[in-house]
Write a protein that binds this DNA or RNA. Sequence first.
DNA 1: TCTCTGCGTTAGCCACTTCTTACGTTAGAG
DNA 2: CTCTAACGTAAGAAGTGGCTAACGCAGAGA
Lengths: 111, 111
Amino acid sequence: MDAAARAVAEPTRREILHLVRHDERTVSDIAEHFDITRPAISQHLRVLADAELVTVRNEGTRRYYRARPEGLAELTEWMAGFWTSSLRSLAIEVEREQWNARKQQQRKSKK
Amino acid sequence: MDAAARAVAEPTRREILHLVRHDERTVSDIAEHFDITRPAISQHLRVLADAELVTVRNEGTRRYYRARPEGLAELTEWMAGFWTSSLRSLAIEVEREQWNARKQQQRKSKK
DNA sequence: TCTCTGCGTTAGCCACTTCTTACGTTAGAG
DNA sequence: CTCTAACGTAAGAAGTGGCTAACGCAGAGA
């Protein structure tokens, strides 16, 4: 969750998420919408992928990125539940689990 | 909006927000919960205040900080509205449930 | 008045982030 | 096999962010 929050904090990454929120796009396609170079976009996509906010599909030499709805839903839900004390421990636990899951490079079962 | 997203990206600031989410607290009071110095807390509070996520009340030499619910609500709503309409309504539903739970001041765990 | 408390601000340092340039890799075309 | 397109990655520069130490300032009390 910490990774997702930091990923969304970047304006460029938010624009990228908005671009791939419905359709999948290649890296070059995404890069055309910005003034920065393609490698910079690749690095942003890596951050988004580590935060599990996007998924990738390989097709030949091309890589199609797409927003991962579950990750975004988790982030939104965490945001909404930030205020209630009853959900505090839950949020912390989820954050810890996802941190461990990321370190172990394994997929976590979603709610 | 951009300021709010950046403010929440910091773990320390999220903890601060959590501390003042219900009761107002002084800077020294907040600083006692962390290992960092009081000026560092002041700087974090300034970021949160600039993002309009907290409000201040002066009383003598003391400054009481408190979370500003509207600020977080805007952030949550923006997050929810970032994607598809289906996810949006889901997130709003969750938010409404938790708002009701908070109003009831009950400690029961909710979904 | 003088002193103390509570807090904000500044300067400087260190760590992290973001970007570009250059290079390495893989898959398909010819 | 050679060439090219579409990537990822490494390395370094430049910028940003968070922290501490030191200082400044206003309010309360003796």
